[in-house]
Nucleic acid binder design. Structure first.
Lengths: 195, 195, 195, 195
DNA sequence: AATGAATGAGCGTTCATTCAT
DNA sequence: TATGAATGAACGCTCATTCAT
C-alpha cells in the first residue's frame, strides 16, 4: 500500500492520546484546562499535541465524538443465568458500580460540552443525543421492557444516582437503590391489568 | 442609624450582583467565563465588580454560598387540597416544572464547583452537602415519607430528570414520570407488609 | 477681605498634606506609590487628595518644589563657640547626624524625580539644581572656605556618606569621617603657600 | 554532551537579556517600568520575557544578583607605571571617568532595590552589602592603604561625586576632585607621626 | 469641602498557537 | 515526527481619576 502508509498508526496514536485526555477534561473542564497541562499530563510536547489536533476545540470535539462512539454495553459475561427482571436489575446495578467512574466522567464531559456556546456544537450535538438514546434502548433491551416511560424512569434514576454520588458517594447506595427499584417495578407490573 | 451606615446598601447591592451572575456561571462555567464578560453582562465596569468581590474565585464562592442559603421550598399555595401521596407527587412534579430552569442551573454550578480543584472548596463544600440534604429532607417531609431509601429514590429520579432534560427536553416528560412514580410507589407501598 | 477668603487656609492645608507625603515618596518611590496609599497614609479620602492636587504628577512636583524651597540650614544654636575650621567641621557632622534621615529622604526623592522622564521636569529641574548649589554655598560659608574645589570635596563627601549609610549604617560613621576630614583639611591648608 | 544539553544556551540568553535590562531599570526605576516596556526595549515579546523570568520581581532580583557578581575592577592596563599614591589616585579618577555611567546606573538600581519593601530582599540584601564592601577593599588595595577610615573617605567621596554629577555633570569634575584628594592625602600622610 | 463608589485604560501574567530546528 | 522557544491577544486585577452625593 504505497499511498496509505502510516495513516493507521497516526490515527491509532491519535485515539490513544484522546483516551488519555478523557480524565483530564472530566476533572478540570474545558475552560479550566490548558493545552500545556494536557500535553504534560499525557506525556507529549505541545508541538506534538498540535501535530495530532489542530486546536483545543478540535481536541475536545474529537474526544466527545470518540465517547459517543464507544459502546460500553453490558457484556455477555454479566448476564450469566439472569432471568427474572429483579435479577436483571441487580445485574444492571453491578454493571453500574463497575463503571461508575467512567459514567460519571462521561456525564461531566457532556455537561461541559453544552456549556461552551462558542464551540461548533452542531455537528456533534446529534451524536450526543443519539448516544444517550442508545443507552436507554440498551437498558430497555437488557431489562426486557418495552414501555418507554419505564425505560425513562430507570435511566433517569441511574443518571441521578451517578450524579448524586458524585457530590457525596455516601449519600446513596447503588445496590440499595437497585433493590428498591426491583421491588417497586415488580409491584407495579404485577398490579397492571393484562393488556 | 449612626452605626452600620451604608453596609446594608453595599451588601444588598453585592447580593443583587450575585443574583445576576447566577445564569452566567451556569451557562458558561467558571473556567470559561471572564470577569470582563461578567461585568458587561451584569452592567457594571470591571472596576466596580472588583469593588464588590475581591477576586473571581471569591465571586464564585460567594455565589455558591448564596445558593446554598436560598430556600426554594414548596410554598403553601402549592399544597392546596393535596392529600394522598399520588396527589403530592403530582404537586411535586408541578413544582419541579415551575423551577426546572433554576434547578438545572444550580446543578450545573455545583458540578462546576467540584471540578475546580484549585478553588478553596473546603469552607463551602459542607454547605453544599448540607444544602443537598435539606432538599432531600424537604421532599421526604412533603411526601410524608420516612423511608430514606424511597426518599433517595425520589430525589435521584428528580436529579436524573433534570439533567436528562437539560440535554434534550423532549427525551422525557416531568409530568409523565411523576405519574408513573405515583403509581409505582402506590403499588409498592400497598404490597408492603403492615409494619 | 471679601475676595481672598480661605485661600490661605486652603494653601496651608495643602502644604500640611505635602509634608505628610514626604516620607511616603521617599520610602516607596513615585512609580510604586499609589494615590490610594497616599490618601490612606495621610488620612484623607482620594477625593480630598484630588481636591488639593489635580494629579499624582502635580502632587509629586509640588512636593519637590516645596523641598527645594525649604531652608534646612544650620541654626545659630549650632554655632555656639565654634571658631576653628576643625570645630566647624565637627559641628557640621553633628548637624548632619541630626538631620541624616531628612537628607537621605530628600536625596531619594530627587533621584526618583530624575528617573521619571514622562514628568514635566523642566519647570522644576532648575530649582533642584539651585537648591543643590545653595547647600554647597551654605557649607562654604559656614566653614569659611572660598575655594570651590574644597567646597565640592566636602559636599561630595557628605553626599557619599549619606548614601553609603543608607545601604548600611554600620559601614561608616559620620563622626569618624568628619574628624578625618578636619585633619586632612588642616594638613592640606597648612601646606598651602600663602596666597 | 548528553547531560546538560541546552541549559547553557538558555542561561546564556537569560544573562544577555538581563544585561539589556540594566539601563532600563536604572533609567526608569522598578515601579515605573512595565514588563511591556522591558520586552519592547530588549526586543522580545512579553511571552518570551516570561519564558526566561517567572515574574517582574524575579527579573529585578536576578538583575541585582548579576550586578553584585560582576567584577568591574581596575584592569592591569590601567596601572602601567603607577607608583606613588598621587599617581594611583589619578589613575583611579581615570578609571571612574571611564565607568561613570555604569557606576551611576548601578547606584540607581541599588537605591531602587532598597525602596521596594514588598520585594523579597533578604536573600539578596547581603550580596549587595558584600558587593559594596568588595569595592571598598578593591580601592584600599589599589591605593595601597590599610587605614579603613581613609578607605571610607575615598569611597564616600567617589559615591558623592557620582551622585552629584548625576544631577548636574557640570557641578563638579572628577579629575579636579581626584587631584585635590591626592594633595590632601599627601599632606595628611606626611603630617602623621611615624607609627 | 469631603467622601468613596464608579470607571476603563493599563498592568503583570497566561494562554492557545506557530514555527525553526 | 517531535520539540519547546517564541508570539501577542486576552486574562485577572489595579490604578489614576471622576463625580454624584
Amino acid at each position: 500500500m504505497l499511498f496509505m502508509p502510516k495513516i493507521v498508526d497516526h490515527d491509532r496514536y491519535r485515539k490513544e492520546l484522546l483516551k488519555k485526555c478523557f480524565d483530564l477534561f472530566a476533572q478540570r473542564g474545558y475552560g479550566s484546562l490548558t493545552m500545556r497541562q494536557v500535553a504534560q499530563e499525557i506525556g507529549v510536547s505541545t508541538g506534538t499535541l498540535y501535530h495530532y489536533f489542530p486546536s483545543k476545540e478540535a481536541l475536545f470535539l474529537q474526544l466527545i465524538e470518540e465517547i459517543t462512539q464507544q459502546d460500553t454495553s453490558i457484556s455477555a459475561d454479566d448476564i450469566q443465568g439472569v432471568e427474572t427482571i429483579e435479577e436483571r436489575i441487580l445485574a444492571l446495578g453491578q454493571f453500574l458500580m463497575e463503571h461508575e467512574d467512567y459514567f460519571h466522567k462521561q456525564t461531566l464531559i457532556f455537561i461541559n460540552f453544552f456549556q461552551q456556546p462558542e464551540l461548533e456544537q452542531e455537528p456533534i450535538i446529534e451524536a450526543v443525543k443519539r448516544s444517550n438514546q442508545r443507552y436507554q434502548e440498551a437498558i430497555m433491551q437488557f431489562l426486557g421492557i418495552d414501555n418507554p416511560a419505564i425505560a425513562n424512569h430507570v435511566s433517569c434514576l441511574i443518571d441521578g444516582l451517578i450524579s448524586q454520588r458524585a457530590f457525596d458517594p455516601e449519600s446513596v447506595s447503588i445496590k440499595g437503590q437497585m433493590e428498591l427499584l426491583a421491588q417497586m417495578l415488580s409491584a407495579y407490573l404485577d398490579n397492571q391489568p393484562i393488556s
